[in-house]
Design a protein around this nucleic acid. Sequence first.
DNA 1: CTAACAGGA
DNA 2: TAGTTCCTGTTAG
Length: 860
Amino acid sequence: MEDDDSDGGDGAPVHGGDEDEEEEEVQHGCGGEEQKRGVCPGEDGEGGDTAVAKRAKVTTANHTTTTTLPSLSSASALGAPCAALERAGSSVTGRLAYGRNKTVKGVDHEKVMATILATSGSSAYMKRLQERSARTVRSIASKTQRWEAATPRERRRAAAVAEEAVREAQERLTFSRVYVHCDMDAFYASVEERDNPDLKGKPMAVGGMKMLTTANYEARKYGVRSAMPGYIGKALCPHLILIKPRFPVYKSVSAIFKSILRDYDPDFLSGGLDEASLDITDCVQRRMDRDLSLTREATACALVEEMRARILAATNLTASAGIACTRRLAKTCSDWKKPNGQYFLPFTLDSVTAFLRPLPIRKLSGIGNVTEELLRGLGVETVAGMLEQRAKLQLLFRPRTFQFFMHVAHGVSVPRTRTRERKSISTERTFDATSSRVQLLSILNRICSKLTAEMQEKQLAGRCLTLKVKLATFHVLQRSVTLPTPIADSSVLFAQMRAIMARELEAASPSPSRMPAVRLLGVRVSSLTFGRNRATVLDRFVTRRGNGGGDDDGSDGDCDKQGMDENEHSASRQDAVDTSSRGMTAVDEDDGDGDDGDDGDEDDMMPGLFNDEVTDMAMMGDDDGDVDGAMDDGDDGFAFSDVPPPARPLPAASHDEIGNGNSIRGHDSDNDDDDDDEVVVVEAQTPLRDASCHLAIAPTGAASTIPKSAGSPLCPVCGRHLPTENAALNTHVDECLNRHLLSSIATPDTHDMHNTAAAPTTTTTTTVSAATTTSVAARGTVEATAPTATGTPRPTSTPAPSSSFSSLQLFSSSNKKPPGQQRASSKKKKKRRKQTMQKQTATSAVDIRHALSRAAQRWS
DNA sequence: CTAACAGGA
DNA sequence: TAGTTCCTGTTAG
Ligand SMILES: Nc1ccn([C@H]2C[C@H](O)[C@@H](COP(=O)(O)OP(=O)(O)OP(=O)(O)O)O2)c(=O)n1
Ligand SMILES: [Mg+2]
């Protein structure tokens, strides 16, 4: 029902005019429920931002602020962390997600911040935070100035437009539907306490010294929060007990939780493992029809009490809920009586207004740290303030963003259309920062393998491939390529990402000879196509036992199977891959229910939030700083020449922590073995040219086996034991890399068509460019495997069952959007390079060893 | 239509 | 000693 949304339009927001300014912008996001929206960026336009650094952009003043920023970034200079932090102190810490927001009663905020600064005030993370905060500060200054410079006429106009927006928002607020937002209390922590009663009453958090996913209420009294590093939690609360996360367990508990919700609204929106938004209008109405003496409020409250009681009985865990006339309000209300309670917001405009006005804006879904800080700088801290200063906000932000603010201030949520299909799929991993090409390549390859395995499982292929790199400085780079044809093959993906990584690291390197240290690598595939066949086919590189395939040609069997189809959803799986699967486990049981469908992996990782919900926003954009550029392009070239290592399970990064996969808790022990396999066959692949460089490499062909464990580290390329001394080790690895090839074709398309390949893009069709040629040859083969029926259907189905996951609805957008698209965004121009500096200590030899040993131990 | 960035959950 | 995954808006070509 609902749907509709409003606006629908979409179109682009326009911004107002503006001129300038610089950057910033903020935006907001939208939030939740609703649609999409969100945001606005900056207003200003201009893109300046990007340049920002460079120029100070203009705007007025400029000066001061602007200038500063750039410099700092760069710098190396930053050196004085302390001073800087002090200066910006509050604003910096204010940016921390756990900075404020849920305040549990008696937490001494000042003390918490002081502890955080003392504990990690000079870390790279904090420096980066400071840079970002500086940008927000600049934005505030520019907006303030713009407002002050506004003529009476402009202000009047803004006020008039704002009135219209308010009217529109009020019209959207209806009281005809009843929503309930249900959220488990301190979810992961509660599960752990339930399974280990000794923890009750003691401060405890789930996670490791590096990152906490959540904390129980006892620990929250000390300021310990979700997304806070464990070592800071320990500093805040010395007796804090850290428990390793058991994601599979949370997932199974979540399935039980959701199965209960389904009885009240089979189409509920899920927001992660522990929260969901239900439309209980029909359910409430049925009960009222049964007993005409019941009021809607009484019925809804009783129904929710019952729901929570069932959850408690089934999971032995408590949940809190909010009942209101919109999803957005229900969500906010679910926090109202948090630990184990529920709150009913009367269905009258006065009640809603009274509830919202005093709320700090940060409590509204879609208003995050940045938006909060920005608005605070403009004098807005509560919903009431937002309404009072609506003319100012109207003048300063883009229409879309302003509209979002008004919706949020009135509790309006825009309906989402349901189901929403997935638009991208990605995997990323954080590890100990390194600048070793070998290590990075090895990690990248694993990431690509994991991602393609998931894609194949879900029968997805995509044309837009994006590499994400987070430097040790916490600066993030994202670079993408769009291929003419969708791919789902690991070797193709790896070849493309590898080429981009080489190019970018080179551009970002502080000095010609040294690569910047990297702490995270991620790969995302978008512009997705659902389809059974596509994909696959050329994956050669590691296959699990057997099989080889080689050659190109396709055939490869892989395909294998085929046929299937049918399905229901099931997946067809092609096996072949799986690579990483890992084995273990099993345990989790998983579900059974169906719900989820999604994922399948379950592996280890943190599920984190699914998406859902909210999202919306994007705020700003801008800047960064870099300078310009120069260049770009150019070359690409060189860079690594290495090759892909065997793919196998991702290494996990650190030991404890969440996030990665492995780790195991207890001793794992065993595990490993299991599997059998121990041997992995690595194949070489076809010759092809490296995507980036144009070299062709001869295939090695032979496959080498990698013994699983062994004493010395194994070469990520050939899998053999490495020499123990650094020089020899490096030499060996380099040689290996040179030997191997990379493969892949450029873009092979699978079937028919001729396609060109390789080079990304642009050219379309036929044309063959030099580059293409190569690829052509390579590709040839492939073939399709199966005919598949194409047609298939819609992706939607996939997600289908259950949940819907994701999606969430919360927001939504209206929109239309054509099929393939993607987005992303921000401002700035392009330019690349730069960034970071850092010195790295690196030592590649040492790093390599380190990495290798880690890789080796990760079993594989 | 793309790419890149930033923000949010 | 600061995680994961997915999404969205914006700007600039
Ligand atoms: N940055 C975050 C936030 C949350 N979570 C995980 C751990 C939480 O237990 C779960 C649910 O998130 P909530 O925001 O609902 O937080 P809690 O359920 O822990 O606490 P609350 O009682 O405030 O709902 O998601 C996470 O991994 N990383
Ligand atoms: Mg919760």
